[in-house]
């Protein structure tokens, strides 16, 4: 990890992030509490599977949030970049999000437009960012105007490198929505009001992690789908070969 100077602004960012995460974590706790109560009231064990999936997803999410929040809190650290296979990160991200997606009735798909060499990223950072983002989108999709409740984990080439991200048919995933969200982050309990009913913490955690990789979350398109993703630079050594 390299060193960076912590500024008062960075401290403010971490506090905002922690507030968003705390707000976000109310939801899985609430779901688990009500599912457990419903199981007792209805004298059935059919909610047990949902409780387990919800709690497991929340625990994994918390790890990713902690990763992002720690980076933001410690301020002086930057994530070390290494050659990373984008396809492999997207595959593992899909695996992590699969059960949660099923719980919300969302179809998760992988889509790679071509073959890619390694990119310069931090593997854990990239995966945590995509999982955090995925969680927010999965949870949000049923309440958006999505026709087919489908979320694509995808990568394609662009002028500046490889874009890896998550895509849906929801038109609200725009640059304006993201810009407004970043502006309201820390001042509103629902900064991404056109995208999600929650605090959208996953989006801001992804943003914080990607910043530590000298990258950022950006609105992007994949075929006809709308999405959020990040541009990753190809590994220069592989390019020379």
């Amino acid at each position: 990890m390299g060193h960076r100077t912590r500024t008062p602004a960075a401290s403010g960012v971490s506090e905002q992030l922690l507030l968003a995460v705390a707000e976000q974590m109310k939801l899985p706790f609430l779901q688990v509490a009500r599912l457990a109560e419903a199981g007792q009231l209805r004298n059935t064990t059919e909610t047990l599977q949902d409780i387990q999936t919800t709690a497991d997803a929340a625990l994994r999410l918390l790890d990713n949030y902690l990763f992002g929040a720690r980076l933001s809190l410690e301020g002086q650290y930057a994530l070390e970049l290494e050659p990373v296979s984008v396809s492999s990160v997207l595959y593992d991200t899909g695996h992590e999000l699969d059960k949660l997606a099923k719980l919300y009735g969302v179809d998760l798909e992988l889509s790679f437009a071509g073959k890619f060499g390694p990119v310069m990223a931090n593997r854990q950072g990239l995966q945590s960012a995509l999982i955090s983002l995925g969680y927010t989108l999965i949870e949000a999709l049923p309440s958006l105007q999505s026709k087919d409740l489908r979320l694509q984990l995808a990568a394609h080439r662009c002028r500046y490198g490889i874009v890896a991200g998550l895509y849906t048919d929801v038109e609200q995933l725009t640059a304006d929505a993201l810009r407004a969200g970043r502006r309201l982050h820390g001042n509103s309990r629902q900064p991404l009001a056109t995208l999600t009913h929650s605090s959208g913490a996953g989006v801001f955690v992804a943003d914080a992690i990607l910043h530590a990789m000298d990258s950022e979350l950006t609105p992007t398109r994949h075929h006809k789908l709308f999405g959020l993703g990040t541009v990753l630079k190809p590994n220069p050594q592989i390019q020379l070969i």
Binding site: L30, Y104, P142, S143, H197
Partner: peptide, 17 residues
């Protein structure tokens, strides 16, 4: 109710009533 999980849980219990 915007959350699909909570909506399902509330609906089930109220439907039972």
């Amino acid at each position: 109710e915007p959350d699909a999980q909570l909506a399902k849980t509330y609906a089930r219990v109220l439907h039972d009533d």
